[in-house]
Design a binder for these strands. Structure first.
Ligand SMILES: NC(=O)c1ccc[n+]([C@@H]2O[C@H](COP(=O)([O-])OP(=O)(O)OC[C@H]3O[C@@H](n4cnc5c(N)ncnc54)[C@H](O)[C@@H]3O)[C@@H](O)[C@H]2O)c1
Ligand SMILES: NC(=O)c1ccc[n+]([C@@H]2O[C@H](COP(=O)([O-])OP(=O)(O)OC[C@H]3O[C@@H](n4cnc5c(N)ncnc54)[C@H](O)[C@@H]3O)[C@@H](O)[C@H]2O)c1
Lengths: 231, 231
DNA sequence: GTATAATTGTGAATTTATGAACAAATTATA
DNA sequence: TATAATTTGTTCATAAATTCACAATTATAC
């Protein structure tokens, strides 16, 4: 019923609104939010509509109650825990940002198969042995697992997480893991993202050079198609 | 004309096919690739069609030439360079993975405003002063910039990158930067992604518990709507 | 107060992405 | 060599996401 895209935008709105509130702003209009995010005002209004929150015509949305509506919608009534598997380069960066930083949602435990890491604490988060996975997940009541290990181990660790009661996985490994359809998976594939940016960067450059050429040579506007981008 | 989604999938196909080739596989059929990625075969055929490459009915695609077609389409004829701004927790992880690892596309230089980092080399990549940004970008002919700094500095650094000739930006900061429409931007917003996974994890759990309840109480199948997911 | 200007909420239109289905092509097989 | 079995390329259909556009509503100016 509610789409992933909408959830992502609601999370964004919240972050922006929290900032604006500390700056003393009390109300906001759909086109202001839209401009900050480079989207259309109708999109903002539609998303907020789905919350059940109503704005005031000719005046906009009151930030305080809108934030409450978003929190009400996005957040769990209880603080929510996540666990991280793989305390390597990426895992460490994630711990630096998400280990107990927010009360509402945070990484509460980490795991690694490397004995050198087990028992140590990284950015305030303890690293456990893989043998303790199920026990710790149950104890911390975690429902989200973050995979920051190489593709090789990803499927088997994913299976373990699911067995232990995890129902959402954030997967940074390049492998597309298979899970029961009662589990939500998000693949963050930084390599393909990097390649994509590189691809479009090149196209943009070509397009711009083509435009320059056309201007220099004062040709009439030919039927060049513009690039499709997400801006 | 070609969509971002298609580019992402082509990059995925390539990675899988490279692996399969070293395992000795010579041909592949659309449904095999589709199964590995949890998508539909028609999607695979459509994507490959856009490359201009043709498969063989009743036999599939020959992996070697297909890989060549993909490389031809996705890659620059010359090796392509990227620069990273912000050698913090995340920046370091990115350097560990992308600093000169591939010949075709790699991070060739890093920048940080912290004097303690300037002049040092991280994972084989030299960190320069922000003052050298333009010079190094021009020298390395980089067209991609990666932002791994806090939101505060993101807009001004982005402007600098664009001034220096960058035409693609991979932005890890929470700020939605503004760029001319001749520049491609990809926002990787790990906080919102994390919140999204948490949100759907919770819904999944509820949904599953609801199903269990229904089974235990042997009610007739009510009109419960299923969740929309991306699996 | 009344008029004016502005902004919301939302149905309808549009665009974009995905999926189903089938003729055409090709291989394998009898 | 002919037939059967498959898989591709692609058209047409469906679904999802976005955008338009405008009536309804409210604030503000006069
Ligand atoms: N670092 C990046 O910027 C980056 C970029 C693109 C993709 N990735 C992907 O993210 C994942 C992690 O990357 P990284 O750079 O942190 O790798 P890394 O090698 O630095 O760290 C991997 C960690 O996972 C642990 N590990 C390995 N297999 C395990 C298993 N089966 N169970 C438990 N722990 C295990 C290792 O001991 C190590 O600590 C990899 O799949 C990588 O391809 C990372
Ligand atoms: N680490 C994560 O897992 C994670 C998760 C979500 C979001 N992010 C975002 O990614 C970005 C980087 O995160 P991090 O954890 O690496 O932060 P960090 O604080 O560890 O590193 C930031 C680095 O950028 C440098 N820097 C800051 N301002 C700069 C400027 N104007 N010019 C040049 N260099 C500058 C700092 O000196 C530091 O080295 C942040 O915007 C953060 O919100 C990171």
């Amino acid at each position: 019923m509610i789409s992933e895209k909408t959830i992502e935008r609601l999370s964004l709105y919240r972050r922006i609104l929290q900032q604006l509130r500390v700056e003393g702003k009390e109300t906001i209009m759909s086109h202001e939010l839209a401009d900050l995010l480079h989207i259309k005002p109708a999109q903002v209004r539609r998303d907020i509509m789905q919350l059940g929150y109503s704005g005031i015509p000719n005046s906009g949305y009151r930030i305080r109650p809108l934030l409450e509506s978003i929190a009400n919608f996005l957040d769990s009534p209880l603080p929510q825990s996540a666990v991280l598997v793989g305390v390597g380069h990426l895992g460490l960066a994630l711990l630096a940002n998400f280990a107990g930083r927010w009360r509402q949602l945070a990484i509460r435990a980490a795991f690694d198969k490397d004995p050198a890491k087990v028992g140590h604490t990284f950015h305030g988060c303890r690293c456990y042995s893989m043998l303790d996975l199920q026990k710790v997940i149950v104890e911390t009541k975690s429902i989200v697992g973050i995979l920051a290990i190489p593709g090789e181990g990803a499927q088997s660790v994913s299976d373990l997480l699911v067995q232990s009661g995890i129902s959402g996985i954030l997967n940074f490994s390049p492998l597309r893991i298979k899970v029961p359809n009662s589990v939500f998976v998000e693949h963050v594939d930084l390599s393909t993202t990097f390649e994509k940016v590189s691809f479009f960067a090149r196209r943009m450059k070509h397009y711009v050079e083509e435009e320059k050429w056309k201007i220099e040579h004062e040709t009439d506007e030919g039927e060049y198609e513009t690039l499709t981008t997400n801006q």
